[in-house]
Design a protein around this nucleic acid. Structure first.
Lengths: 204, 204
DNA sequence: CTAAAATGTGAATAATTACTCATATTTTAT
DNA sequence: ATAAAATATGAGTAATTATTCACATTTTAG
């Protein structure tokens, strides 16, 4: 009795088999970075942990840097998605409330995968390249918020202000993650960061 | 005709000859870091540039890390000295003036050797280790200033505030150095940083 | 002057690691 | 069933580079 040909065509291995491999590699890469740090991040170890041969790794990632890039891009996407979600529901319009919201969004975004984030942004050589994903988008997001709120800001002033705010948020979240996790736990960081930036922007 | 024995004893080679060598190595190391970046910072290249054999380098620096450490320590000393000079003459007592002074001191300290500073703090692997010199001293300096000025600060509050201020200053100066040198040139950074922190501290 | 101490030399070593390629296995389409 | 296409394998290559060490030169002290 010949079996029916399956309704869904047998899944294309070009698609699925390799996608599983790619995913295993990415997962293994993230695991090694977060658990062992960049010092131990070698392509051979990643392949081993992924349960895949080193040759397969190089079939999908032409070099080590491209693997890191893929990881950083995916992570940045996750962060941006979460940040946007936090910023959608914007009923309030007072500057301190908007700032509080932005800070909360940034803190939440950094909680997606804090260990991976720190390694990608502070351990990986040439981490500027990794930052390209986060930073530009964050600055644009901030810029539009600020324009909406403080229409008395001049364009030149705007660049400077966006720089001040973006850098301050990022630096203090990173600093808290590495040196004072308790400030993050208790919410003290959110509060102080909001206070810092509100006081600054209200004076404009 | 036998010459007089020199009044000053012939300078001890253990002292001078080797000191010249050590200095040449340190200078070459700084040069390679600032001009070529950490990627090209190999011990053999340092020795070559210093006009010294690789063996001599290892006579005075047991390993590559110790060379970086020596460089970082010397650079931190220079920065701290300059910062202290800026903070000596403290006639003013208003918070904004004190803040302005602290900001100016930090900016001046970072101008000692900006390129080297950035490489040591952002390119070198495990740059946390390099920061140990600057950071603790900076925080202590800040702490005493803040205690003097805002005596209503609680001890727990103090740790948090010192963290906020120190990190913010450092991050914005670094950010300006790498991405917006024009803000440093024009003094806009000093002004905004002072405004940011004054507004924050005055609300305490 | 001379021996010991200090300093200098640089070819060689040893370890690491990103990446290749010849070959094997699996899947697909007919 | 079968050939072509896709995917997987992993031992091997090649380049880099921190560090050593056996030996040379210079300096000092007596």
């Amino acid at each position: 009795m010949p079996s029916q040909p399956p309704a869904t065509p047998r899944k294309r291995p070009q698609q699925e088999r390799s996608q599983v491999t790619v995913q295993a590699i990415l997962t293994a890469a993230a695991h090694i970075l977060t658990e062992a740090g960049y010092d131990h991040f070698t392509t051979n170890k990643v392949a081993e942990r992924a349960g895949v041969s080193i040759g397969s790794l190089y079939q999908y990632f032409p070099n080590k840097a491209s693997l890191l890039l893929a990881l950083a891009e995916h992570h940045a996407d996750q962060m941006m998605q979460l940040a946007k979600d936090h910023l959608e529901t914007t009923g309030d319009r007072s500057i301190p409330e908007v700032i509080r919201q932005i800070v909360a969004a940034a803190v939440a975004a950094h909680a997606v995968n804090p260990k991976l984030h720190l390694v990608l942004h502070e351990q990986v050589p040439h981490s500027e390249v990794m930052r390209q994903f986060d930073q530009a988008k964050m600055e644009n997001l901030l810029r539009s918020f600020l324009v909406q709120q403080c229409d008395q800001l001049q364009p030149k002033n705007l660049d400077l202000t966006v720089f001040m705010v973006e850098r301050t948020i990022r630096a203090l979240i990173h600093g808290a993650m590495t040196e004072h996790p308790e400030f993050l736990q208790t919410g003290e960081l959110d509060q102080e960061l909001t206070a810092l930036l509100s006081a600054y922007l209200l004076k404009k």
